[in-house]
Amino acid sequence: MGATAFKSRALPLHINLTHTPPVAGNGETTDIAQVDPGFIGSTALVPSTFNTGSYGWKGNKRITVELLNSESGGKEKVQVMLTINATVLGSKNAKGEDAEGNADAEPSNPTEDEDEKGAGED
């Protein structure tokens, strides 16, 4: 599948970041921040084409992480910029082809991936 077909078909991916290790769930959908005491934040990854010619999902978000201070016993907050690229394996080889193997009519925009304000930015 080419990049154009991928971007027209792919839905966003949603990421939850937590200190809590994964556990088997019961299939119910709830607000993760209410049931997970280690919840840090969440963001969405949007379908994208990368400068390398491959495609996948990307997103970034600024989050606050609390660290335990072993000396004072208190907590210290640090600001973190989370950046995630999820590349579809083998997509670089599909560069320039649509779903039927024809050349893409649209040229890729190489500056799209260099945008500092990605999906999920607060």
Score class of each variant (00 low, 15 high):
residue 109 N to Y: 10
residue 13 L to N: 02
residue 86 A to L: 11
residue 20 T to K: 06
residue 18 T to A: 08
residue 87 T to K: 04
residue 112 E to A: 15
residue 96 G to F: 07
residue 6 F to T: 00
residue 106 E to C: 06
residue 14 H to F: 09
residue 107 P to K: 12
residue 23 V to C: 02
residue 119 A to E: 01
residue 93 N to P: 00
residue 25 G to V: 00
residue 114 E to G: 14
residue 13 L to G: 01
residue 72 S to I: 05
residue 83 T to R: 11
residue 113 D to L: 06
residue 119 A to Q: 02
residue 12 P to E: 01
residue 114 E to H: 12
residue 27 G to Q: 01
residue 12 P to R: 09
residue 10 A to N: 11
residue 89 L to M: 12
residue 33 A to M: 11
residue 4 T to I: 15
residue 82 L to F: 09
residue 89 L to T: 14
residue 37 P to N: 04
residue 10 A to F: 00
residue 49 T to W: 01
residue 95 K to I: 01
residue 100 E to I: 00
residue 55 Y to G: 14
residue 40 I to V: 15
residue 41 G to P: 01
residue 75 K to I: 02
residue 117 K to T: 09
residue 51 N to D: 08
residue 110 P to R: 12
residue 67 L to S: 03
residue 32 I to Q: 13
residue 81 M to E: 11
residue 75 K to L: 09
residue 62 R to G: 09
residue 42 S to L: 06
residue 101 G to L: 04
residue 75 K to F: 10
residue 48 S to Q: 03
residue 10 A to K: 02
residue 116 E to P: 10
residue 44 A to R: 09
residue 51 N to S: 14
residue 83 T to Q: 14
residue 45 L to M: 08
residue 50 F to C: 05
residue 1 M to F: 02
residue 114 E to R: 13
residue 34 Q to I: 07
residue 73 G to D: 01
residue 18 T to G: 05
residue 80 V to W: 07
residue 114 E to S: 15
residue 92 K to D: 08
residue 56 G to N: 01
residue 62 R to C: 08
residue 106 E to Y: 10
residue 104 D to E: 14
residue 31 D to G: 03
residue 6 F to P: 02
residue 55 Y to W: 05
residue 94 A to Y: 03
residue 22 P to N: 14
residue 38 G to H: 07
residue 21 P to E: 13
residue 107 P to S: 00
residue 77 K to D: 10
residue 28 E to R: 11
residue 45 L to N: 02
residue 60 N to R: 12
residue 44 A to N: 10
residue 16 N to S: 05
